[in-house]
């Protein structure tokens, strides 16, 4: 039983990080119909911003982390929007998908060639101490990750639901035409979404890298997980992506422990297919209607 609880806590901690990536994924889809195949690389990159800040500019870790978040908002938010997404918006979904696949390769290989092909140790914000007793291990690391990630998500949820800008962003996501008629500055709201995605990716990166190590190729797995979490949750709902993230984190751990470690990757995907078949709008999503 203690094992089970330990696994749930570990699953929640990693799930919270998946949720951060999945929420960003969903936000981009909502406001700009961008299926971002580089989302995993977006989570990989900020850790290297931070490491570069420490290594080449001698910044202390907290400052470097802050710089990494700001730089991510600039590069993965602003530059991504204006240089990659905007020129392709008119071309439809598929060229943009291909372009993000290209971007994923670019980021991955770019980090490999300019920084290192090897995994890098990454500092943690939290001390590596056991908060539990001898038989029951809960590390401060896990609790810290869980609190910070969940806090970030709650903050975002509050921002979207309770501030004027947040509600305008939601309006933009749901119906840009109507939003524009109602006087919402749609372009600015879309830009905000990209900024938020950049910041969320950076948060996920800083939280996950102490456990996963920073490596150029780690985005492949992370991207797939974020993608699955977003679809499981409904793909068009921030709430769904949050639930999807936690669910994938927990299921992964429980399956590996109690079912099969060689097929652990298959279970979240099987869940995905089941949900598509039985509840196409996702766990918490709503049906999209086709505009004719």
């Amino acid at each position: 039983m203690t094992d089970f609880i330990q696994l749930i806590i570990a699953g929640l901690a990693t799930g919270a990080i998946y949720a951060l990536a999945a929420v960003g994924f969903t936000l981009l889809w909502q406001t700009s119909q961008t299926i971002n195949f580089a989302q995993g690389e977006f989570v990989m990159l900020p850790a290297f911003f931070c490491l570069a800040g420490i290594k080449f500019f001698g910044l202390p870790f907290p400052i470097a982390a802050l710089v990494a978040i700001l730089l991510s908002m600039l590069v993965l938010g602003v530059i991504f929007k204006f240089a990659v997404v905007d020129p392709l918006m008119k071309q439809g979904t598929l060229p943009l998908v291909i372009s993000t696949i290209g971007l994923a390769i670019l980021l991955r290989e770019g980090v490999k060639e300019t920084y290192s092909a090897e995994a890098q140790r990454f500092p943690s914000f939290f001390p590596n101490v056991n908060l539990g007793t001898a038989g029951f291990n809960v590390s401060a690391d896990q609790v810290g990750v869980l609190i910070v990630a969940t806090g970030t998500i709650l903050l975002l949820a509050w921002f979207l639901a309770s501030t004027k800008t947040g509600r305008q962003m939601q309006a933009t996501a749901q119906n840009p035409t109507v939003a524009r008629i109602l006087g919402v500055n749609v372009e600015r709201m879309v830009l905000y979404t990209f900024l938020i995605n950049g910041a969320l990716a950076a948060m996920a990166s800083l939280l996950i890298s102490p456990i996963y190590l920073a490596k150029f190729s780690s985005g492949e797995t992370l991207g797939l997980v974020a993608f699955v979490a977003a679809i499981v949750g409904g793909f068009n709902q921030v709430r769904g992506a949050i639930v999807g993230g936690f669910l994938v984190g927990i299921i992964d751990n429980l399956v590996a422990a109690y079912v099969s470690s060689t097929y652990r990757q298959a279970v979240p995907l099987a869940l995905l297919v089941l949900i598509i078949l039985l509840r196409p709008q996702g766990l918490l999503g709503r049906a999209e209607e086709r505009a004719v």
Binding site: D3, Q6, L7, A10, G11, T14, I208, I211, Y212, L213, S217, S218, E220, T221, D252, N253, L254, A256, A257, S261, T262, R264, Q265
Partner: peptide, 20 residues
């Protein structure tokens, strides 16, 4: 007798099984 994936990052479940 535990197999893990190349590139796997989360080892919580595997260590629990080793301990058990």
């Amino acid at each position: 007798d535990l197999s893990i994936e190349a590139g796997q990052a989360d080892f919580a479940a595997d260590v629990v099984k080793v301990k058990a």
